[in-house]
Nucleic acid binder design. Structure first.
Length: 123
RNA sequence: AGAGUCGGCUGGACAGUCGCUCUGCGGGGAGCGGGAAACCGUGCCGCAGGGAGGAAAGUCCGGGCUCCAGAGGGCAGGGUGCCAGGUAACGCCUGGGAGGCGUGAGCCUACGACCAGUGCAGCAGAGAGCAGACCGCCGGUCCCGUUGCGGGCCGGUAAGGGUGAAAGGGUGCGGUAAGAGCGCACCGCACGGCUGGUAACAGUCCGUGGCACGGUAAACUCCACCCGGAGCAAGACCAAAUAGGAAUCCGCAGGCGCGGCCCGCGCCGGAUUCGGGUAGGUUGCUUGAGGCCUUCGGUGACGAAGGCCCCAGAUGAAUGACUGUUCCAGACAGAACCCGGCUUACAGGCUGGCUCUCACC
């Protein structure tokens, strides 16, 4: 791995087929009232991230952008400690009401749970 | 100073660390793909620079652009609706007119036509549209033994009362049985002329008419003008895998069909090539009715000339996160082909013109 802090295109889910693969063969799940995390192992040597922030659940474009940025930022800083998973984060209804620090805290917790569960699965 | 009115500008700042995207420059003896190579495409590293809005929003109008359709004309459907100008165009803007509101600055108006036709109008009321006698007023006549200014009948009458959102010009004088544009004066109205204005319209200078053609067209309708349809997921190009198609060649080794058999032909087979085309990718994609400054023309919207500038271009979708400092403690809110408007949301801050009231010099 070149950089363990960057976030370029190779770290994102890029096509509809990538997404549908994660949805159809989910192996690890985690959730809270504001968001749902699902993941499936990939054959690369690093994790990848995809986001689904529906307009139905987060009405304003400003809030959707804010959440995406926060999730990407959090993922960027944690990626080095993560197994090779394709992760999709789905926003739920109350997510826009959380402020930045609350979102970051929530994400930290969910990354930990997700990695733990993935590790249990492989061993 | 207070109250008000019409605009214009702005939409936290600074520092550090870690990221994203685009552009430019530089770098690499072995990143990947192509090529004989030069090199090309892509990627990597470093440096420098750009990186959301006044509404980016709602998607309500108007254009550009793209494809499809199209001789010409009409109908249907939709839109606009005082006049003139501006503009690529508009339902926008500017100037003007008319009506209404306000002491005023100023604001508001879907502001064409109901003597082309059709329709609509609850309740009240005698009567609601080529109107109408309920009370009243007046005349005549009859009756009650003649008294009361009584009652009935036949007429006249729209001045008064009453109803209503609205009752068919207003005021005054004459007139009359009582009244009435019945007549006259003034005001108003309609029509024609004249004058001013490009026009909407105004003036009331002159003449004519006793005087309605009631209201309603965001009611049907009529009149005038405008409008082909779909949208960047438009459109153009490259193009895996799989299935199917076409052409050429191979083989004549095999199977099936035509046939008694052979030759031959057709189909199946293998190879190559081609065209359509899905996933995916590239492009369209930001230099434009562009911005800023100056001068000139115009009351103004705006136009002309000259100079300078290049100012987001993502595509599972960049423009951010964290920490610190500071202040007046940060509202509404995120580009998706691009412009011109309209509408709606919005913490505050700065600023200009004008009006009214009060006080002082």
């Amino acid at each position: 791995m070149v950089a363990n802090q960057g976030f370029d295109r190779s770290l994102r889910l890029l096509s509809a087929s990538d997404y549908s693969r994660v949805f159809s063969s989910t192996s690890v799940k985690s959730g809270c009232p504001q968001a749902l995390f699902i993941a499936s192992p990939n054959r690369l040597d690093h994790p990848r991230l995809g986001l689904v922030i529906a307009r139905k659940h987060v009405k304003l474009a400003v809030h959707r952008n804010r959440l995406k940025r926060l999730i990407r930022e959090s993922f960027r800083l944690r990626q080095a400690q993560m197994p090779s998973l394709d992760i999709v984060v789905l926003a739920r209804r109350g997510m826009a009401e959380l402020d930045n620090t609350a979102v970051s805290l929530m994400l930290e917790k969910q990354w930990n749970r997700l990695c733990k569960r993935a590790l249990e699965k492989t061993t």
